[in-house]
Design a protein around this nucleic acid. Structure first.
Lengths: 192, 192
DNA sequence: AGAACTTGCAACATGAATGATGCAAGTCTT
DNA sequence: AAGACTTGCATCATTCATGTTGCAAGTTCT
């Protein structure tokens, strides 16, 4: 049989393309609730037969990789759309945070996976995002927004963690309120 | 066969007791690297036969539950030993952070699991820790250390996240330096 | 020393998840 | 409308983790 990967094969027909998207979305939903969920559960959540999942993704690993790559691209696109090397760092910080939060709320599991992926494509895309983030923080430091002497690697991890926490809130605040919370906390902590 | 749980049965002989500890430590190490690791891998890391693991912990779940309960108790003990309702909040914050970091560095996987456990014993112990933490933050707010208006639930989650990030650093700084970093960031963020 | 206990080993049973295939019915595309 | 493609279904093979058991050899306790 001609096993065709979801990525790489020749163009899929419209219905098949939709199926792939549906499966990826279902995978995100199911796996974020239970990382050990089976193909069966994913298929059920997607409303397709398990065999269909296997037809689109040769192995479980292939599905996870596709999911990861998909999220990494979404992430990178979100950052690319909002980052800027010329606008004031504080403005950019707000914009990026809001946009990233939107993506991360829907693709948290996959994005987290992307951060630890070994797939060269994902590594490249993710490294690019990290570089943009570091550049922003460096500029923020030069502008005087960020205290001199702050370790920028620590700042980035801290920022990621805040974004993660913000997406975990059951509180259904809008994205702007959340990003304000994140940026304020990032900059000023909780002291008086 | 008389299957005896690691917790609950009659007292174990000294060698068996040691084996249980060895297995729990190995489980923490292995599972923190790969949460889907098998009993086989855990047994190997502990330097015992897989059957021995099954003798001490009837099922995989039983092992995970024991590990979680063990970590929860360690966590609670660390907080109990350092928390205080009378010492200045800032001092307590430093003390607690340093002590918790020590525990969390060695038991990160299990402690994280404790935070989501449904086991009533663990829930009770963990709720107690959360209560102590909230009390500390409330007091910090009343003292003027923490800005009025800060959501204390958010503060706590934020604080947990910082501790988590601090334990992830490969940088082998001592616990005091790490806890200073955590507390400083918690209070003042990264702004100038 | 002797009883009770623990461990490793080998072997086995079971169940669950993965992955493959052929076929009939339905859907796109042109 | 015709050909190509996709899907669900039923079915099967395989692999792997889990959990058991009996037994011999070693350890702990009193």
């Amino acid at each position: 049989m001609t096993k065709q990967q979801a990525s790489g094969g020749r163009p899929l027909r419209a219905d098949a393309e939709r199926t792939v998207r549906t499966i990826l979305e279902a995978a995100e939903r199911v796996l974020s609730a239970d990382p050990a969920a089976t193909m069966e559960q994913i298929a059920e959540a997607a409303g397709v037969a398990r065999t269909t999942v296997h037809r689109r993704f040769a192995t479980r690993e292939a599905l996870l990789d596709a999911l990861t790559a998909w999220a990494a691209r979404q992430f990178a696109a979100a950052v690319d759309a909002t980052a800027s090397d010329t606008a004031p760092p504080l403005v950019v910080l707000h914009r990026v945070t809001a946009r990233v939060l939107e993506v991360k709320i829907g693709w948290g599991y996959a994005m987290n996976r992307a951060a630890f992926s070994a797939d060269p494509e994902v590594v490249r895309v993710h490294a690019d995002v990290v570089a943009k983030c570091d550049r922003l923080f460096r500029r923020a430091q030069e502008t005087g927004l960020v205290r001199p002497g702050v370790d920028l690697e620590w700042a980035r991890r801290f920022y990621y963690a805040l974004i993660h926490e913000a997406t975990q809130r059951d509180d259904r605040a809008d994205v702007d309120a959340l990003s304000t919370l994140v940026v304020d906390t990032l900059l000023h902590g909780i002291a008086a």
